[in-house]
Computed example of a mutant assay.
Amino acid sequence: MTPCVEKVLVVGGGFSGMTAAIELDRAGIQVDLVETDPHWRTDGAGISLHGATLRVFRQIGIYDEFLESGGGANGFDIIHPVSDETLFTLPTPVVGDVAFGNGGVMRPVLANILRQRVRETATNVRLGVTFTKVTPVEGGAQVEFSDGTSGVYDLIVGADGVNSALRSALWPEADAPAYVGQGVWRAVVDWPQELERPGMWAFEDLKVGINFVSPTKGYIFLTEPRPTLEHLDPTGFVEYLRALLKRFPSALLNRIADSLNEDSQVLYRPLFALLLPKPWSRQRCVLIGDAVHATTPHLAAGACAAMEDAVVLAEELSAAKDLAAGLEAYENRRFGRCEMIVNNSRRLCDIETSGGDRAEHSRIMQTSMGALAEAI
């Protein structure tokens, strides 16, 4: 099929923006990608992945590279916070032509894989540049850039993250991302040999999990309630995370706590959520990823949803008779799924911060994992 657009601008070079560039190029669409960071960097520790994310990796041609650098698993253990015994294993459905139902990888490693894939396409990548103004013109939108250049595009894809400048410019009435009263700590550790697969412990108002990021390394993630948004001094991150881990009776987690050091890449991030009502398009612009549905990490589905957006958008632009129909079809396919991810993640957060029903927590996890395995 002939796509309903010929030239597209992607604003943002993160996971969703890079996936959009790959898939739009595959559809025969001319793509410019602008990224404000001149070094095109991605910070962060590990990232947990669902089978649905691995399905996207297969779609965009990076699955084999992921397997060489990351780690895959089937199932997710719920572990006793005192004895370290496995209480039960949550199934993680294998989705499509992949070997695993879940996995993990370091964020910078995944970003490097995606960057290389983008470089193999005809995408015109411009670093250290972003848009400054968008003006509707006949048959398109004129974009002025921060380096003084300009261009006319059939469509602009806003993939510029939770603090999206494009959303602020064209959706000024939109609510700001909402702080959810919880923060997440992450660190890279040696993989504990007694663990067969990724797992999670819960104790009091804390939850900690561990996932593969390579054959020998794992990353831990720990959520803690923080009723108010505040700045934390990075120089104290290692000791603070160590103290949180030592609140668990678990001998394994105490051993991990003792192993933390300045090389553990300890990070802290306050958590925010956002779900923009439809329509997600306006004035020849459409939003994808965190720019339109930022979620907390409780379902490990943020990157998955963002990359799925890009895949679906390219499919609908290829199939539609005109741009309006393509954008409407994209929104209709994505809204309900993304609403489920944002709302279920937020409910899991509420249960954790309020000491709520752990049985409900498990039910939401299982139901959501099944929904994520469904076709997009």
Rank of each mutant, 00 (worst) to 15 (best):
A52F: 03
R226G: 01
D97W: 00
S345M: 05
I210S: 06
E68T: 10
P270C: 00
E352K: 14
D322Y: 08
E85M: 01
I376Y: 10
D263H: 10
S146L: 05
P225W: 13
N344H: 06
D97I: 01
F131L: 11
R242A: 05
I288G: 06
A27T: 11
R58V: 00
V34L: 13
A176I: 01
A324N: 09
G75H: 02
L244K: 15
L166G: 02
V184M: 13
D258Y: 04
A294Y: 08
A300N: 06
G139P: 07
N254M: 02
V189H: 03
G148H: 11
P279Q: 03
G151P: 15
T367K: 12
D43R: 15
L127F: 00
I351K: 02
V266N: 07
I60A: 06
F248T: 00
V152S: 12
R117V: 01
P91D: 15
G356F: 14
A159R: 04
W191Y: 05
S362W: 11
I78T: 08
D37F: 11
Q182V: 13
F66A: 00
F237L: 03
L67Y: 05
A21P: 07
R197A: 09
M369I: 15
T353Q: 15
R282V: 04
M369Q: 14
V162G: 12
K217C: 04
A251G: 08
S16I: 04
T130V: 01
V98I: 14
L267Y: 15
W185M: 06
A187G: 13
A359D: 11
G151E: 04
A371V: 11
A159P: 07
A174E: 04
G28A: 12
R58Y: 01
L241P: 10
L33C: 10
V10K: 05
I29H: 11
L114E: 06
L127I: 05
S264G: 03
Q59Y: 06
V109C: 02
S214F: 12
R117L: 00
N112C: 00
A45W: 14
E315S: 08
A329C: 09
W185I: 10
G44W: 10
R255V: 00
F335H: 13
V125L: 14
L206G: 09
R282N: 12
E315V: 08
W40T: 14
E204D: 10
A359Y: 13
E239Y: 03
P270A: 15
E68R: 15
F57C: 02
S281Y: 14
L229F: 15
S362V: 13
D322L: 05
S83I: 02
G151V: 10
A371W: 11
R363E: 12
A294K: 15
L244R: 08
P234G: 02
G148L: 13
V143A: 07
E352A: 14
D43G: 14
K7P: 01
S69L: 09
F272C: 03
A371Q: 08
R26M: 07
E85H: 10
V129T: 12
S69Q: 05
E316R: 12
A174L: 01
